[in-house]
């Protein structure tokens, strides 16, 4: 899975979220960094084809998005920034439901993900009675469902404690081979532990794209 973005722009009313973004993605794990409102969520949503850009083009494997959304979407796992699942559903029901929609035939996948993320004990409890961290973990589990070749994870570790983060990274490392994983975070240790590549956005512009070790050379004062 390779992605290419050229001259991507998106505004919400008078507020510019992305300005003329040009990026190329190869399989691997990439951290998306930047302050609040820098355009991370909009970029991930555009990559997931959930938000239509005002200008610019996106390609995956050389094919323009608009020509082949069906294939792209069937290969994409996405974790939204905000999770608002129906309160009556349970994590297991949600995963089984989305698994049906993704035409997943392997019956063990849901159990594997619930177990890998430590959700087994709450798998049959409605979302209305789960903590924020447990809901986020379920969101992460559904993104990994179906072994997608493109994973777009917004605020991957928000609200997770240390132990939960370890589980998430362990799952991601196991699943990273041959895939493109783009995740946004505000937490520098996440980046250090998980990847060596980063993209930094500021006011909708890409101000850095490369190895994390080079980051402080390009952007003085940017430290992990």
């Amino acid at each position: 899975m390779e992605l290419r973005i050229r001259e991507l722009s998106k505004s919400y009313g008078t507020q510019v979220a992305l300005r003329n973004v040009n990026l190329d993605f190869q399989p691997g794990t990439i951290a998306l960094l930047g302050p609040n409102g820098s355009g991370k969520t909009t970029l991930l949503r555009c990559l997931a084809s959930l938000t239509r850009p005002d200008h610019g083009q996106l390609w995956f494997d050389g094919i323009p998005y608009r020509r082949n959304l069906k294939l792209l979407r069937s290969q994409c796992g996405y974790l939204p920034q905000e999770l608002d699942f129906p309160h009556n559903l349970t994590p297991r029901q949600l995963l089984e439901y989305l698994g049906t929609l993704k035409n997943i035939s392997e019956s063990g996948q849901v159990d594997y993900l619930l177990s890998a993320l430590g959700l087994k004990s709450v798998a049959d409890r409605p979302f209305g009675r789960l903590s924020g961290g447990q809901i986020r973990l379920t969101g992460i589990a559904q993104a990994f469902l179906g072994k997608p070749s493109l994973l777009l994870l917004d605020e991957l570790t928000r609200g997770l404690d240390v132990e939960e983060r370890e589980r998430v990274f362990a799952l991601a490392r196991k699943s990273s081979s041959g895939r493109l994983i783009v995740f946004s975070t505000h937490d520098p240790p996440d980046v250090e532990r998980f990847t060596e590549q980063a993209i930094v956005l500021q006011q909708g512009r890409v101000i850095f794209s490369g190895k994390t070790e080079d980051l402080h050379h390009h952007i003085p004062g940017y430290h992990f």
Partner: peptide, 20 residues
């Protein structure tokens, strides 16, 4: 509207919106 998040995730599946 409570199923809006779910609606977005449904769009990222192999099942078409019309089928659903």
């Amino acid at each position: 509207p409570e199923t809006r998040t779910l609606g977005e995730l449904e769009r990222l599946t192999a099942t078409g919106a019309a089928e659903l």
